Amino acid sequence: MGILSRTSYVIRSKINALLNRSEDPGESLDYSYEKMRDELQDVKQGIADLTTQKKRLEIQKRRLEENVEKHNSQAREAVQQDRDDLARQALEKKKSKMSQIEELEGQIANLQDTQDNLVEKKNKLQGRIEEFRTKKETMKARYEAAEASTRVSEAMTGVGDEMDDVARSIERAEEQTDEMEARSEAMDELEDSGAFEDALSDKDSIDRELEELSSSREVDSELDTLKAEMGKAPAEEEPETDTEESTDLDEELNADGDVDVDAELEDAEVEAELDELKDDKS
């Protein structure tokens, strides 16, 4: 098989597959039924035309028969008048008309046979059409029921073009939702890290840290001023203590419920400092 032949075969196969998928059996059956009805109508029209032609020949035959009677009467009258010549002419015309009548009778008989044959075929065709009509309606009902059952099954099992479209739509929506959620989280992270402030401001991290220190000093200065106005001495800076000591105060009791000696000494020192503060105020 050559390339062109194979290509033609593939194209025809594709076209037939597309036609089979797009063809509606109900429409095809209706179209076939209408074609058969058109053929039946053509047969009826042919029978009507044939009958009309036969009637014309019958009318012509009757006229010839009337002429035969007329010529016969003319011959009789001519014989009575001793005009054999006229009687002979009348008889000759009568014979000619009789020949025409015989020819018409043959044509009429042929037309009648043809008409009877067409009427018989018309009756058979009409019967086939009625039978086809019953089968057509039955097949359409079966096809529609099968189609409805198939659609329900496809909907329940998730099979079919429409369900494929729905599945693809859901998949695209999930992808877009995931992307939007990731973008939202990224924006929140950038905002928390101050990346947006860097983009909108000319200050760098050192400038912001210096501003925070300056703001803290301003607050401390305002607090000292407020205490001076109220007659209180500014708070002295306390030496930094290790963070582990504060956490150790929460664990004064050991596993056996005994009191920690170091914790008692620290508590005594704190109480002594508080007593000194009270003596100063008094």
Rank of each mutant, 00 (worst) to 15 (best):
247 T>V: 13
236 E>Q: 12
219 V>C: 06
5 S>E: 15
204 D>H: 00
22 S>H: 15
37 R>D: 14
186 A>R: 12
32 S>C: 03
256 D>I: 02
256 D>R: 03
175 E>C: 05
56 R>G: 15
137 E>H: 04
144 E>G: 03
126 Q>R: 15
103 E>V: 07
175 E>P: 07
265 L>W: 14
1 M>P: 01
268 A>F: 04
226 L>W: 07
192 D>S: 06
140 K>Y: 04
277 L>S: 06
62 R>Q: 10
220 D>I: 13
1 M>L: 08
45 Q>D: 11
201 S>T: 15
212 E>V: 10
179 E>W: 02
105 E>Q: 09
74 Q>F: 11
183 R>D: 14
183 R>F: 10
110 N>K: 12
228 A>H: 00
111 L>W: 08
266 E>P: 03
185 E>A: 07
248 D>A: 15
138 T>R: 12
23 E>A: 09
223 L>E: 10
176 Q>T: 06
171 E>Q: 07
109 A>N: 14
249 L>Q: 13
161 D>V: 07
261 V>M: 14
206 I>T: 15
171 E>P: 01
187 M>H: 10
42 D>F: 01
42 D>N: 08
120 E>S: 13
219 V>N: 12
32 S>L: 07
123 N>F: 04
254 N>R: 08
211 E>Y: 03
145 A>N: 12
29 L>K: 00
215 S>R: 10
139 M>Y: 12
37 R>C: 11
103 E>S: 07
177 T>C: 05
104 L>Y: 09
26 G>Y: 01
196 F>L: 04
4 L>Y: 14
52 T>C: 11
182 A>L: 06
218 E>G: 04
62 R>I: 09
100 Q>E: 02
110 N>S: 15
144 E>Q: 07
25 P>M: 00
276 E>P: 03
132 F>V: 02
53 Q>D: 10
28 S>R: 12
119 V>Y: 04
202 D>Q: 00
211 E>N: 10
70 K>W: 05
167 A>T: 04
203 K>C: 04
147 E>T: 11
238 E>L: 06
140 K>C: 00
221 S>Y: 12
141 A>P: 08
115 Q>D: 15
220 D>S: 14
215 S>F: 09
216 S>P: 13
67 N>V: 05
173 A>V: 07
86 L>D: 02
254 N>P: 02
254 N>V: 03
199 A>I: 00
207 D>E: 03
247 T>F: 13
188 D>C: 10
201 S>I: 05
79 V>D: 15
23 E>H: 09
95 K>I: 06
36 M>V: 06
275 D>C: 03
109 A>D: 14
36 M>R: 06
169 S>E: 02
71 H>M: 03
106 G>E: 11
155 A>P: 01
213 L>P: 10
164 D>V: 01
261 V>H: 14
243 T>F: 11
225 T>C: 01
239 P>M: 03
276 E>M: 13
51 T>Y: 14
87 A>G: 03
189 E>W: 01
219 V>I: 13
189 E>I: 13
90 A>Y: 01
49 D>S: 14
231 G>T: 00
197 E>I: 09
37 R>M: 05
88 R>T: 02
58 E>Q: 09
117 N>Q: 15
145 A>V: 11
37 R>E: 10
21 R>L: 11
47 I>S: 08
106 G>V: 05
